[in-house]
């Protein structure tokens, strides 16, 4: 008789007696399996989330002992703060553009690599996955060298092929620097959508393809009518991960531009840091943290419910 059935037979007993029984029999499981991890969660994650929400209603410089309650002042500030607006729209830009690269290039590449018409598909997948093992700090430094004005390799390449006209101050041009960072970010992350789509494609029943081929469908029609619909769940997962990933963005911006020039690459994750640690405004910084929490929570909870069901059943 398994434990699960043994426990299930006690369902009619009251919750309290069930708990008491559980305590007596399951000390190790209860203490080390449940209480300890939950306690660690509460101290390092749960309480900080709540305390951060509290901080968002206060004015605090992070150093002085006094934390002053100011109601919704910080939230009113958000609406009138051009710096926040700039960071918000930059984050939006980042999320949308990164997502289109992850989905567009990721899907196309995966389908090609899976089509059986490319040799060594696993090798190519490994190559594209490689940057993901690098930290974004080293990725940022590496591209800072490649893009540096004067002696950077990219400018030298462009000059070498007679395209001097295209040379820009890649990391100091208000109009283009954010796109440069987004592309580098997508470059470093593309391995993940690629692996996910690969798994999704491998799971598609090949009989579907065979049947469609018998009906005379072209490869294009196959991709559109068979592959894409079967990949829908994977596309959803990639979308959620990609959006959350973009929302958190900090490392690349911090290492490569510090949010500049003139706030052109300021994103929410970095603006929160600037407000808190450069301007010593922990209350307002916490408010931006709460905004990030709200955006991520919607995506995260939907996704995690699926993950949890999968892992537990």
């Amino acid at each position: 008789m398994t434990e699960a059935i043994g426990l299930r037979s006690q369902v009619r007993e009251t919750f309290l007696s069930k708990l008491a029984d559980f305590m007596a029999n399951r000390g190790f499981v209860l203490v080390f399996g449940i209480i300890l991890p939950v306690a660690v969660y509460v101290v390092f994650v749960g309480w900080p989330i709540l305390f951060n929400i509290y901080l968002s209603f206060t004015k605090w410089n992070g150093l002085a002992p006094d934390v002053v309650f100011v109601g919704i002042d910080n939230y009113i500030r958000l609406i009138n703060d051009p710096g926040f607006r700039q960071a918000f729209f930059n984050s939006l830009k980042w999320a949308l553009l990164a997502l289109s690269i992850h989905l567009g290039i990721g899907l196309t590449l995966s389908i090609l690599l899976h089509s059986g018409r490319v040799d060594f598909p696993a090798f190519f997948r490994s190559l594209i996955f490689l940057p993901f093992t690098m930290s974004l700090v080293t990725v940022g430094l590496m591209f800072s060298l490649i893009l540096s004005p004067g002696f950077g390799v990219l400018d030298a390449l462009l000059r070498g092929v007679g395209l001097e006209g295209l040379i820009r101050t890649w990391l100091g041009d208000y109009d283009i620097t954010i796109y440069v960072l987004i592309i580098i970010d997508a470059w470093a992350y593309l391995g993940i959508p690629l692996m996910m789509f690969h798994a999704g494609l491998s799971a598609i029943n090949t009989e579907l393809f065979d049947a469609a081929r018998v009906d005379g469908a072209s490869e294009w029609q196959l991709a559109w009518h068979v592959t894409l619909p079967s990949l829908k769940p994977v596309i959803l997962i990639v979308t959620m991960l990609s959006v959350i990933q973009s929302l958190k963005t900090f490392d690349l911006v911090s290492v490569m531009t510090g949010g500049g020039p003139a706030g052109g690459t300021s994103v929410l994750g970095h603006y929160m840091y600037v407000i808190s640690f450069r301007r010593n405004d922990f209350g307002y910084g916490a408010t931006i943290g709460v905004v990030m929490l709200l955006f991520s929570a919607g995506f995260a909870l939907t996704y995690l419910r699926g993950v949890a069901r999968n892992a537990l059943d």
């Binding site: 449940i34 991890p37 939950v38 969660y41 390092f44 994650v45 749960g46 309480w47 900080p48 989330i49 305390f51 951060n52 901080l55 992070g62 959350i244 929302l247 958190k248 900090f250 929410l268 994750g269 929160m272 840091y273 808190s276 922990f282 910084g285 916490a286 931006i288 943290g289 709460v290 990030m292 929490l293 991520s296 995506f299 995260a300 909870l301 996704y303 995690l304 419910r305 993950v307 949890a308 892992a311 537990l312």
Partner: peptide, 19 residues
């Protein structure tokens, strides 16, 4: 409880760093 523990995975660090 399990979902609660897993929220950590998707939580932007910026939402807990000040506390």
């Amino acid at each position: 409880l399990f979902v609660m523990l897993l929220t950590t995975l998707m939580l932007p660090q910026q939402t807990v760093i000040l506390p």
